[in-house]
Design a protein around this nucleic acid. Structure first.
Lengths: 226, 226
DNA sequence: CCGCGACATATTGAATGCATGAATGAAGTT
DNA sequence: AACTTCATTCATGCATTCAATATGTCGCGG
């Protein structure tokens, strides 16, 4: 790996953000982080710079860095864009997928099935990511693949919430099956449409979730366990 | 703006990259840049970190930062994604645009017309950007708008090449007219399709351009894709 | 009693210094 | 003569230090 310190730190902090260890809106104190990781402030700053450029943290001059809080509306917008990009990846994959792509998609799809049937949400969550990445790769557009992976990462925490919803995992797997069929049959339009719906529905579900949470708990500022 | 030093530097270097002052593949020496801008190496490093996170420069451990050279293939992929995002923005704009959006679109469109008729490519280039940004804004999706602006910036140098092509400016303006009509009439599908083609044709033209350049000059240093 | 202003403190932003690793050149060996 | 190896040099990466600014508190005046 030969990772440099600041790259390791960047991944570490990014991971802390998407896993919710650092809550949205939380202030990221440089000295504190430096002490925690046992390094100087310099590499911490460099890591925060990169995260700031990506859009995960917000740095205001002289006022430090805070974990960005997208807000429900912005998150919904991100799902919309994600849907558009995934649908594009699906269309390209339908037209361009090779034999290896086909094998990778089928394999990850099978893994998803196993997780779905045994009801292991964590496992499904992981395999779902592998599945979607297989589609990105099959699009044979390196840039699109990168964009999709980046957005997928950013949406990870919000996606995770949804698998807890009743039956979502089974439904999701059912959608996967149709998507696989369309892609492997080379039906670009169908793959595009199915993937768009597959992602868009997550945005809708997220909205529903937010609406419910808002109704239920008004002062619940932080992370809702459930 | 009262930007901080490193933010100013970031914009400065980014600008230098998209204007071609820093050639693709060129090594960005920290000390050199520091001397040039009259600052220490620290803010330079921070600026390079951000650019690295955006994808404009590539930093390899212990080997410094170089301007990233996407290569023809990658650039074409970027145009493809841009087309998809713009088409999405157009569809949303058709459905959501307000009276102010309508005014902004018409105004920038008129500016484009003036530039096109007087044949001023530089002016058209600028007004074209304003026009497209008006559409992004009319989509009323803050996240989509940001993504579009960022990608537009990155594609700026390659887009600029194309306006020199014979008659491209007039053709481009004609496409704009149809796009405006569709958006203002609320025809989301038409707007989407027209915008996709409008951008996609730029990717195609870029490919043609590259093909020509390759044929003409073989030992041309930098840009090698694939 | 409330509001405004000045000062102290703490945190960020920039500069400098030092160590490590990579690139380059020369010298020796095959 | 060419290839390999070692030493030297220089850029990068991190730590430390110095400076500037925002925030919070205390005091004074209305």
């Amino acid at each position: 790996m030969a990772q440099n310190t600041f790259q390791t730190l960047r991944d570490e902090i990014e991971n802390g953000i998407v896993t919710g260890e650092f809550a949205p809106g939380e202030r990221l104190d440089e000295a504190q982080l430096a002490a925690r990781f046992g390094v100087s402030r310099t590499p911490i700053r460099e890591a925060l710079m990169q995260l700031s450029a990506i859009g995960l943290v917000e740095t205001r001059p002289r006022r430090g860095a805070t974990v960005v809080d997208p807000g429900p509306n912005r998150i919904f917008e991100m799902f919309e864009v994600m849907a558009q990009l995934e649908s594009m990846a699906g269309a390209l994959a339908a037209r361009r997928h090779t034999e290896e792509d086909r094998a990778a998609i089928l394999k990850s799809h099978a893994e998803c099935e196993r997780s779905a049937q045994s009801g292991e949400t964590d496992s499904y969550y992981y395999n779902n990511e592998v599945f979607h990445r297989a589609i990105y790769a099959a699009s044979h557009s390196g840039f699109l693949e990168e964009q999709c992976i980046a957005l997928h990462r950013r949406l990870r925490p919000y996606r995770r919430l949804q698998l807890r919803v009743r039956n979502r995992m089974k439904v999701s797997f059912g959608e996967h099956a149709a998507i696989v069929e369309a892609i492997l049959a080379g039906q670009a339009d169908a793959a595009s449409r199915l993937l768009r719906d597959h992602i868009a529905v997550q945005g809708d579900r997220f909205s529903d979730l937010i609406a419910n949470l808002d109704r239920r708990s008004k002062p619940g500022a932080g992370s809702q366990g459930r």
